[in-house]
């Protein structure tokens, strides 16, 4: 004789899932607050170098006072080979550039046009002049510095005089 009755006739009641939306909404809000939207998906592979004492770019992003450009090896192997034959192992990537031919996407001389286009399409509430709008260069660790200075030169020629070198912050100690 046991004290516990085994009653197999009754089916187990279904689990109440009415609080599931609450949980999911909570997760949703967490991610909405804790993350920032991606600027674009570059077609070059960028592995950033490390550094300390960096400046956080988030406030500039919120005020859209920043444009990103990427430098790295192309992800597409065929394209990588094509440009490697031309002696360009590391390529520049510009998003949303008005392109007359597909190569413009990777062309250093297209920076001026790209930057001015971006500047003109900024929201009107932005008061920053083109000199103050940051151009953030996200470059791969192996990029030759010459390419960075080519970019600088292009920016200088259109008076976009603020540049930012993106790095991965290895902890603010």
């Amino acid at each position: 004789m046991s004290k516990f009755k085994k009653d197999n006739k009754k089916a187990a009641p279904g689990v109440n899932t009415s609080s599931l939306p609450d949980i999911v909404f909570m997760l949703l809000f967490f991610f909405m607050v804790a993350t920032t939207s991606k600027e674009s998906d570059p077609t070059v592979k960028v592995e950033q170098p490390e550094g300390v004492r960096t400046t956080d770019m988030t406030p500039y992003k919120q005020r859209s006072e920043i444009d990103f450009l990427y430098v790295g090896k192309p992800m597409n192997p065929a394209r990588a080979q094509k440009y490697a034959e031309m002696g360009m192992e590391y390529l520049l990537f510009l998003d949303n550039v008005a392109q007359s031919n597909p190569d413009d996407l990777y062309n250093v001389t297209a920076i001026g046009r790209w930057k001015i286009d971006k500047f003109e399409s900024k929201p009107s509430r932005m008061t920053e002049t083109i000199e103050g709008v940051i151009t953030c260069v996200k470059a791969d660790q192996g990029t030759p510095s010459g390419l960075i200075f080519d970019i600088r030169k292009e920016l200088q020629s259109i008076d976009a005089l603020t540049i930012a070198y993106a790095v991965r912050d290895n902890g603010n100690i």
């Binding site: 991610f31 909405m32 804790a34 993350t35 920032t36 939207s37 991606k38 550094g51 960096t54 400046t55 956080d56 770019m57 988030t58 992003k61 990103f68 940051i134 953030c136 996200k138 600088r152 920016l155 200088q156 020629s157 008076d159 976009a160 005089l161 603020t162 540049i163 930012a164 070198y165 993106a166 790095v167 991965r168 912050d169």
Partner: peptide
């Protein structure tokens, strides 16, 4: 999918005027 967790960190420098 559309957001990223890592924040953009960088060093801001000025380019001299041409």
């Amino acid at each position: 999918v559309t957001t990223t967790m890592d924040r953009d960190q960088a060093y801001i420098r000025n380019i001299p005027k041409l």
